[in-house]
């Protein structure tokens, strides 16, 4: 749930106009063209920096309050928990990788799990604090690895995060995607209890990416593999890495009869169209809201969003008044 999600649309600076420009300027001396290019580059960088600033704060809030996003995140969290296949009725301590603003954490709270969450975006963690999730939050770059003692967690989930490990942040060797992936999976593997599972939903941009990531996970010692839900639906298709430590030891329904070796069978992906599950999804949401109301954690009438909106309105009004004032005087 990294906020960098919002950058994608703005990252295409369209190189075409630049080449056109340089073509037009071939009559002029080479140096003036170069100067122009440098100026254009500086302006572009400035714009990108401003955009990044803006998204840091505003988008973190927007992302969290968008109901469609919320619903998709919630669905994937429930599905990840299902794939985690924890022993029923037993308390567990989980790791939420890229916990963001706590959308998945809230569900972990409601389901009665204790958890710790890590995220690299301070603005998202701030929203998580305001939502008063129960888990401990860490500001951490998962590509730098975890420092948790061996066997700390009974399972790990991650929703829409690990594709970001494929971006190189700088040219330093420790920030190359293979190095970051390897560091992430090795330290995650050792933080997990044996047997247990990690279920990581992510958005790959190609099958090669899926194979690459799964390959690094295997090298780090994980069993398991890739589970694809709704593989034939363009909209509903979801990719989960379902990773096993020490055989994956499901305490669940005994779905996988590993035949003595103890390695669990990889769960099957969901088939059919997304629409089929629409009813279930809304039922879950209703249940969630009912549970919330019962739990006394009912949403305050004048919540954060309300206050922010009010503030914005007031500011707008002030500006309007100032504008009018100037006109009158």
């Amino acid at each position: 749930m990294s906020l960098s999600l919002s950058f994608t649309g703005h990252h295409d600076p369209q190189p075409l106009p630049l080449t056109l420009h340089s073509a037009l300027f071939t009559l002029h001396s080479l140096s003036s063209v170069l100067a122009l290019l440098v100026c254009a580059a500086i302006v572009l960088v400035l714009v990108l920096v401003l955009v990044a600033r803006y998204y840091g704060d505003a988008e973190a809030k927007k992302y969290t309050s968008n109901t469609r996003n919320q619903q998709i995140q919630a669905d994937m969290t429930y599905r990840a928990l299902e794939l985690l296949n924890l022993p029923p009725g037993q308390p567990a301590f989980l790791l939420d990788i890229g916990c963001g603003s706590g959308l998945s954490g809230e569900i972990l709270d409601e389901e009665g799990y204790l958890w710790a969450g890590v995220d690299v975006a301070p603005s998202m963690l701030e929203v998580a604090l305001e939502r008063e999730v129960e888990g401990d939050l860490f500001l951490q770059d998962i590509g730098q690895g975890f420092g948790f003692r061996p066997g700390s967690f009974d399972g790990a989930i991650s929703i829409s995060v690990i594709q970001w490990l494929l971006n190189a942040e700088t040219s330093h060797p420790t920030s190359s995607p293979p190095h970051r992936l390897q560091r992430f999976f090795t330290t995650l593997h050792s933080s997990l209890r044996s047997p247990s599972r990690a279920v990581l939903q992510f958005y790959p941009s190609s099958d090669e990416q899926v194979q690459m990531i799964a390959g690094v996970a295997r090298k780090a010692g994980f069993g398991g593999g890739v589970v694809v839900d709704y593989p034939n639906s363009r909209r509903a298709r979801k990719v989960f890495l379902c990773l096993f430590v020490g055989g994956g030891g499901g305490g669940g329904s005994g779905s996988g009869q590993g035949g003595g070796k103890g390695e669990e069978e990889l769960p099957k992906g969901l088939e059919g169209e997304e629409e089929e599950s629409a009813r279930v999804r809304f039922e879950r949401r209703r249940e969630r809201e009912r549970a919330k109301a019962k739990g006394g954690k009912r949403k305050a009438v004048k919540d954060r969003d309300w206050i922010l909106k009010k503030k914005e309105e007031d500011e707008d009004e002030d500006e309007d008044e100032r504008g009018r004032g100037r006109g009158r005087w």
Binding site: V118, V120, L125, L137, Q140, T170, R183
Partner: peptide, 15 residues
Amino acid sequence: SNGIPNMLLAEHEIG
């Protein structure tokens, strides 16, 4: 700070 530990490492500290 604000209940959140900063676990980020500088480049030369990354394993």
